[in-house]
Design a protein around this nucleic acid. Structure first.
Length: 897
RNA sequence: AGGCGCGUAGCUCAGUGGGAGAGCGCUACCUUGACGCGGUAGAAGUCGGCGGUUCAAUCCCGCCCGCGCCUACCA
């Protein structure tokens, strides 16, 4: 809370997200920070949410998807864009209808018992009561959507868009009705589009059945089938025209057993003579291929199943049997007649309804279709011309393939929940009327006896319009003007065709422009073993549970850090815990900084430029600047993992581990006034900038800390709306970076020696230094205090290059520096010698490698000059180092002897 | 069957035509007043296998093995 900012000393030791998260979310929302404004002249950034099913609850995939969107939109908002992120839900026709049907079933009712109108009322009631669950969960995730613009695909406005699109496509001849074979779900009682059917390989059987030849009692044609029950609807047997085995029988008739119908033997090149017996039974009403064969040969169709996949009167004695029961009976009866030749194992992929997993039944029926080619071609072209860019690019190929081989889209569904098709039939004259508004009477005969089409539209038909219907289309609204095309669509690759492709088609057709400039496709979240998460396997990670346990920021950061392009995310709970620790690290680093700046005058904490700063400060500022550039660039290219990891590495391992440690004395008031002020201002500046860089990833902890920062130069407002840091070459300082890296190298080196020799971490050491370059002398002099502090060194005595190496001492040898730590009685000369030999071997190996390279004329002639030069330097360094190691070894050997 | 992707430290994964990296885990040590949700140091890999291109291959190409996913009308 801003008013509590003066209470900085009260910051608790550990970050308590439970208190912080709801508090800030409420405040952002109340202050209207999520709301999109349209301001002339400002750049625009917009996204539409992939609308979750209104029946849905937040799963880990949603968490990933929406975290990535939120990161991007928060970044752009901070960066000065007018941002709009449109949220909403999808009416999810079949899924929602199933939910309410289950509810009815528990009352012992079916949808037919209550009737269409009452049923739809029940669905709306359900939606009002439970439909908002996932929206509330998105808010807990921190999503900064513009909730004032929340939409639902069945809203009045969106429904109007659906009718408009349907009527226009119909008028353009792109929607038609036809008898066609479609995928039918016998449980949902509706047609399904091709892509709504899932195929899973499973072990089944293939049966060989004999069909007697009509006029030759002893002769049979054997057909192979995986679905023997459909033989009741056979209207032909097909063979390959070039199959000699059957040449003489083409055109003759067979007796269809059990049914005793005569069916012809026809020749069709679709038949593969190699497979089975080379003879195929043809059931046009219940098989896609057979349907096509039937069309080519003008065969009749016999529909043997009703909507429940129960055998109809056409099945004679089998009427009333379920399809699986019918199979058993048909096989038994064939066997009894000696017409079942054999049964073989056979693996096949039966289609299943993607909503309820019931095996679908191909079925001949009258359906509505969208003629897809005229829509698909521009949609493909737009991607090929990069008017919409798909990221990662590897998906373009898949998109291309699908869009090229696309088939007409079956859009009618025989359910009740959804957009009812705006078509009416005149009972008097049979006229078909397609209209935006319910017609009063038949335009042809004037009759008012009009009956509306009972089918509703595929849910994806309405979601295909989402990028413009949510912005007010078909009205020309300011939102549409400002925010279409949207900037980016972030979604999971598995709905590239269901949804993305269809939005491309509809957007281009009705808005004459692509619906989005970029499509970022992220991966699926799997469990730690790489298995798909599913309730039945019991390996789901519930985002709400882990948010409860580790905090939302930790969950978001984990998802971002693992969102590498083109690879599935294998998620284990330990990862989240690791990033929970990071949140805590940020919290405590902030505590440290705030503790030291709380009594400063605000003016003293302002940092305008790195001028006047010491090298350590210049170094961290330079690093911060380069991290800023990396993060920005990563976000612009959807490399969320790169951005997250860069921030993690910088904040923890550079800012905390080194900068704060190096400057602790100055921070706590040791040093000149200038040094103290400078250290504090820089620490605060880096903290401030880091919080802004981190905010898109971790909105809550950063906002909380932001309000603890001192108000240098007035109210800081919210980090959510603070400017996103921008790189600036003035802050870059390669010289300081190099120098501090040397200091770190020396400190780490001494620490290493201490650890290896088991010297107590608290013990102060006296060090003898023999520098071999002015550069390293300078480092030793300038950073004596830092080295002493962080490496626990008591004194450093510098000795000239030709002085005698101490005998009973541990050594640390660089190419231009030798350090000796005399420890009487502690250093075991044998141990030290062994260590030197290890070092020697290591350097020798590098040295030989370099020598070999440089000795190869092919290398020195063909490799780029800079690479060769680098290799020379490497060799020199190794030589210098080796020389010093040898010298020290001799000294020790002399002592020992 | 075709297409795509993956195989790098015990685990999860980055990465690049010229010195093998991170996180977690592991080992040793540490009551250094921001943090033990911490610190310091360390061990650990024939970069799936075999060939090829190249002065140089973990990276590029080919083949093979293993795994995953998507698409397909072999009944």
């Amino acid at each position: 809370m801003p008013q509590e900012a003066s209470n900085k000393t009260d910051i608790p030791k550990a970050y308590d997200f439970k208190d912080v998260e709801p508090r800030w979310y409420r405040e952002w929302n109340e202050k209207g920070l999520f709301r999109a404004e349209i301001i002339e002249g400002r750049p625009k950034f917009s996204m539409v949410i992939p609308p979750p099913n209104v029946t849905g609850v937040l799963h880990i995939g949603h968490a990933l998807n929406n975290t990535l969107q939120d990161i991007l939109v928060r970044y752009k908002r901070m960066d000065g864009y007018d941002t709009l992120w449109v949220p909403g839900t999808d009416h999810a026709g079949i899924a929602t209808q199933n939910v309410v049907e289950r509810q009815l079933a528990s009352e012992g009712l079916t949808r037919d018992d209550v009737g269409r109108e009452k049923f739809i009322e029940r669905v709306w009631e359900w939606k009002k009561k439970s439909g908002g669950t996932i929206i509330e969960q998105l808010k807990r995730l921190g999503c900064s959507c513009d909730w004032s613009r929340e939409r639902f695909t069945m809203d009045e406005g969106l429904s109007r868009a659906v009718r408009e699109v349907f009527v226009r496509l119909y008028e353009e001849g792109l929607i038609y009705q036809d008898d066609y074979i479609i995928n039918w779900c016998p449980r949902c009682h509706t047609a399904l589009a091709d892509i709504e059917v899932e195929h899973e390989m499973a072990q089944g059987s293939i049966w060989y059945m004999r069909y007697p030849v009509a006029d030759e009692p002893e002769r049979f044609v054997t057909v192979a089938t995986t679905r023997p029950e459909t033989m009741l609807g056979d209207t032909a047997v097909a063979v390959n025209p070039y199959d000699e085995r059957y040449a003489d029988i083409i055109g003759k008739e067979l007796i269809l057993p059990l049914v005793n119908r005569k069916i012809p033997v026809i020749a069709d090149s679709h038949v593969d003579p190699e497979f089975g017996t080379g003879a195929v039974k043809v059931t046009p009403a219940h098989d896609f291929n057979d349907f096509e064969i039937a069309q080519r040969h003008d065969l009749p169709s016999v529909n043997i199943f009703d909507k429940n996949a129960i055998v109809t009167a056409e099945g004679g004695p089998y009427q009333g049997l379920d399809r699986f029961e019918a199979r058993k009976r048909v096989l038994a009866d064939l066997d009894a007649r000696g017409l079942l030749e054999k049964e073989e194992d056979h693996s096949l992929a039966a289609g299943e309804c993607y909503r309820c997993k019931t095996v679908v039944e191909p079925r001949l029926s009258k359906q509505w279709f969208v003629k897809i080619k005229p829509l698909a071609e521009p949609a493909l072209k737009a991607v090929m011309e990069k008017r919409t860019e798909i990221v990662p690019e590897s998906w373009v190929r898949t998109y291309d393939e699908w869009m090229t081989n696309i088939r007409d889209w079956c859009i009618s569904r025989q359910i009740w929940w959804g957009h009812r098709i705006p078509a009416w039939t005149c009972e008097k004259c049979g006229e078909l009327i397609v209209a935006r508004n319910t017609p009063e009477k038949c335009p042809k005969c004037g009759s008012s006896a009009l009956v509306q089409e009972s089918d509703v539209l595929d849910t994806w038909f309405s979601s295909a319009l989402w990028p413009f219907s949510t912005l007010g289309w078909p009205d020309e609204t300011p939102e549409l003007e400002a925010f279409y095309p949207t900037s980016v669509l972030i979604t999971s690759f598995d709905i590239l065709f269901f949804w993305v492709a269809r939005m491309m088609m509809m957007g281009l057709h009705f808005r004459e422009d692509v619906p989005f400039r970029y499509v970022y496709l992220h991966a699926l979240v799997r469990d730690a073993q790489g298995k798909k998460m599913s309730k039945s396997t019991g390996n789901v990670i519930d985002p709400l549970t882990i948010m409860e346990k580790y905090g939302t920021d930790a969950v978001r950061f984990t998802l971002a850090a693992f969102a590498a392009q083109g690879r599935d995310i294998k998620l284990a709970e330990e990862r989240i815990q690791g990033y929970r620790y990071f949140v805590n690290k940020i919290w405590n680093a902030a505590r440290l900084v705030l503790m030291h700046v709380e009594n400063s005058r605000p003016d003293d904490l302002v940092l305008e430029s790195p001028e006047g700063c010491g090298k350590v400060e210049k170094w961290i500022l330079s690093r911060l600047n380069s991290v800023t550039a990396t993060v920005r660039n990563a976000l612009e290219t959807f490399n969320f993992d790169v951005a997250a990891k860069e921030l993690y590495q910088f904040f923890w391992h550079e800012f905390c581990d080194w900068y704060l440690e190096l400057s602790k004395p100055a921070l706590s008031g040791n040093g000149t006034d200038h040094e103290v002020r400078s250290a504090r201002a820089v620490a605060l500046h880096v903290l401030d900038t880091s919080l802004r860089l981190l905010h898109p990833f971790m909105p809550f902890v950063t906002e909380e800390l932001w309000h603890h920062l001192p108000e240098t130069g007035g109210d800081r407002g919210y980090v959510m709306t603070a400017p996103f840091p921008r790189e600036d070459s003035r802050w870059s300082s390669p010289g300081a970076e190099q120098e501090i890296e040397r200091v770190m190298e020396v400190i780490s080196g001494i620490r290493n020696v201490r650890a290896e020799l088991g010297i107590h971490p608290g013990a102060r050491l006296d060090v003898i230094a023999i520098p071999h370059s002015s550069e390293v002398s300078h480092i030793l002099e300038t950073y004596l205090a830092e080295i002493s502090n962080l490496a626990r060194v008591g004194s450093v005595t510098t000795a000239p290059g030709d002085s005698k190496r101490p005998g009973g001492a541990a050594s640390l040898i660089f190419e231009d520096l030798e350090l000796f730590i005399p420890l009487k009685g502690i250093v075991d000369i044998k141990e030290e010698l062994a260590k030197l030999k290890r070092d020697e071997a290591k350097v020798m190996k590098e040295l030989k490698k370099s020598e070999a390279k440089l000795g190869n004329s092919n290398f020195t002639e063909k490799a780029p000059a800079e690479v060769v030069e680098k290799e020379r330097k490497k060799l020199e360094k190794a030589q210098a180092k080796l020389e010093k190691i040898m010298k020290h070894r001799k000294t020790l050997e002399a002592v020992e002897a």
